[in-house]
Amino acid sequence: MAAKDYIRERFFPHLWCPGCGHGTVLNALLRAVESLGIGKNEIVMVSGIGCSSRISGYLDFHTLHTLHGRALAFATGVKLSRPELNLIVPMGDGDALAIGGNHFIHAARRNIDITALVLNNRIYGMTGGQYSPLSGAGVLATTAPYRNIDRSFDVIKIAEAAGATFVARSTTYHARELAKIIKQAIEHKGFSLVEVMSQCPTYFGRKNQQGGALEMLQLFKEQTASIGSKAMQEHPEIIGRGVFVNKKAPEYCQEYEAIVARATSA
């Protein structure tokens, strides 16, 4: 199936701003799904609320557009009901780690087989550029006119500590790498988390004098390097890209089968 067959064409052009990174993520996701050859009926995409969550509307899967922060909780209900389905959950950084932080860590802890994508633009895009838990100190936002004092989360470390068994990061500059990583994440059996550094030129870029989309993409290139690379060893402040965690552990739905076995044999 070609990538365009996965799209609901009647909803294009999309509603994202020119230069927004979220469209690149959608493209990478489509390439990943296409290369895996998964049928459209076998994918359920669950999203929350935010610019990033609008991805679900454009894709011809079973799509569930839910509440701000709660996508993983809805997805848990679907997955446990139908473990054979592929659950993909795109979330914004506020969606996943502010209002949805609790669901995020608990879905990771259960190691339920869901592919979570955090589209990290370090800002609340949909509501007009307020700071998020991933903005970081020093950032300017519509609610941080004197610069933000909140420190930011490290999504990778949280996901790993919470129990995710596949944890990776890439950026919208590295679209090919991103597609490959998303593919691995979907294939992975267990909770997988991919953080995608994505640009919001409209709010983050403009507020923080980072220029337009091209300049922001250039920054993703300069500020990141593959983990284990020489560049990373020499410059510890550089943000790592690649797969941080990839391990096997009991998956929740399979473990539930074990409960059923114990209950029915008792």
């Binding site: 569930l64 909780a73 848990t76 209900g77 139908r82 669901h103 608990h106």
Partner: peptide, 20 residues
């Protein structure tokens, strides 16, 4: 399933209902 809170609980049952 025992969820992490009541918000998650109602969301999970809605997801499960849609799955049949």
């Amino acid at each position: 399933i025992q969820m992490e809170d009541e918000i998650a609980s109602i969301c999970a049952i809605i997801g499960a209902s849609l799955a049949g």
